[in-house]
Amino acid sequence: MYSYLFIGLLLFLIGLLGSVLLKNVIKVLISIEFMILGVNINFVTFAAFCDNIEFNGFIAALFYVGLGAVELAVALYIFYLMYKKKESDNIEKYTDL
């Protein structure tokens, strides 16, 4: 169980590192998806090892997949609108809306 949790933690840390340090907007969004995937791995791990009856973690992971897709669609559209104004994918230029 702990090995799966550790992999989820590593993936979350990698996503956190990328979302803080990278400048490219699309890479930042991909890093946020990595963080969501790490959280989902932890949900499924806890459900598989600690909740053998109801599997609530499976349902939570399912909801987070949907919410992650929604967040990505909205964020990409906002990025597209900002890109038309700024003509750059550098996140440091997106200081105003």
Binding site: N40, I41, V44, A47, F55, F58, A61
Partner: peptide, 17 residues
């Protein structure tokens, strides 16, 4: 990475996820 995450879900017993 996303497919490897799906592999993790599969080996954890959650085929639907």
């Amino acid at each position: 990475v996303f497919f490897a995450g799906a592999l993790f879900f599969y080996i954890l017993g959650s085929e639907y996820n």
